Each structure stands twice: as C-alpha cells, then as structure tokens.
Simulated scan of single mutants.
Amino acid sequence: MIPIGKFSRICQVSVKTLRLYDQIGILKSAYIDANSSYRYYEPDQLDTMIFIQRYKRFGFSLEEIKSMLEDVNSNHIEKLIERKTALIQQKTDLEATISKLRILIECIERKENMIENILGNYEINIVEKQPISIYGLRQEMSVADF
C-alpha cells in the first residue's frame, strides 16, 4: 500500500485533492488507519488517477468523471466526441479573438487612432423618423384560455 503523501507525489496532485476525491467518492482510499486517519492507496488506483487527470484536462467536471467511472461498461465515446466538438468550437472562437487582438495591437503600435480604425469600416447615417402611434389592448385571461 502507498501512503497518501507518496501517492500524491506520484500522481502530481496535492494531498488536499486526494482527500477531496475520497470525500466525493471519485477515488476512495483503499485503507484508512483507524488510529491516525491516514489514507493508503493501492498501486492499481494509479490507473484511476490517470483517468481522472486526463478527463479533467479534457474539461470534464468531477461529477461527469465520477459518473463515467461508475459506468465501467461504457467506453464513453459519445461524451468524448461531444467534448471534442466543444473544444474545436472554443479553439475557433479563441483564434477569432486573437486575430482581433492582433489587429488592435498593430494599430496601437502604429499609433493610429483606434476609433477611426474600428469605425472606419462602417458608414453611419443619422435618419430622423416621424413619430407613429402604437395602440395595445390588454385583456385578462386564464392559462386555459391562452
């Protein structure tokens, strides 16, 4: 059995994280000493920890990871495909934001007027409209009437 301190160093997570995982039931310690309340882990629990760390990197919540660990008969392909799609969309959004930021930085470096540069692509026309009357009718009715 591996003491919690050594297990935390092997897994590169804090002891506090391991205690949290034990508390929420995502990675229960194999043995808890009755006298000292010290936690011990089995070597085969390293595989579970690797699974947890990998899925956390993919952006899954601890609740999602726990449910996947409990459902050992599933390969979770649908959830992985959904996560991949979401990450690709995030990447696209970030690339667009980075592109806009790059343009802004270039404008600032060239000491251009940012307002002119930003609004330079737009034509603004001010148009006055005559006021129009709008009428409404209010009636009380029940949900069944709706």
Rank of each mutant, 00 (worst) to 15 (best):
M1I: 13
I2N: 03
P3N: 09
I4E: 01
S8G: 05
C11Q: 06
Q12N: 11
V13G: 01
K16G: 09
K16I: 07
T17I: 08
L20M: 06
I24V: 12
G25H: 05
G25D: 10
K28M: 07
A30Y: 14
I32D: 01
I32Y: 04
S36I: 01
Y41T: 01
P43D: 10
D44G: 07
D44P: 07
L46Q: 03
D47C: 07
D47F: 06
T48Y: 03
T48G: 04
M49R: 01
M49S: 00
I52F: 03
Q53M: 06
K56D: 05
R57W: 00
G59N: 09
G59H: 00
G59P: 05
G59Q: 08
E64G: 02
E64C: 08
E64M: 06
I65W: 01
I65L: 03
S67M: 12
L69S: 01
L69I: 09
E70A: 13
D71I: 10
V72K: 15
V72T: 15
N73W: 08
N73Y: 03
N73M: 08
S74R: 00
N75E: 11
H76N: 13
E78V: 14
K79P: 04
L80H: 00
I81V: 14
E82N: 12
K84G: 00
T85A: 12
A86M: 15
A86L: 05
L87W: 00
D93N: 11
D93S: 10
E95C: 02
I98W: 04
S99F: 07
S99I: 11
L101E: 10
L104R: 07
L104M: 13
I105K: 02
E106W: 00
C107N: 15
I108M: 15
E112C: 05
E112Q: 14
M114T: 15
M114A: 05
M114C: 10
E116I: 02
I118W: 10
E123R: 14
I124F: 13
N125L: 14
N125R: 14
I126A: 03
V127C: 10
V127T: 13
K129V: 14
P131N: 03
I132N: 09
S133H: 08
E140Q: 14
M141C: 09
M141Q: 10
S142F: 03
A144M: 15
A144N: 08
D145L: 11
D145A: 15
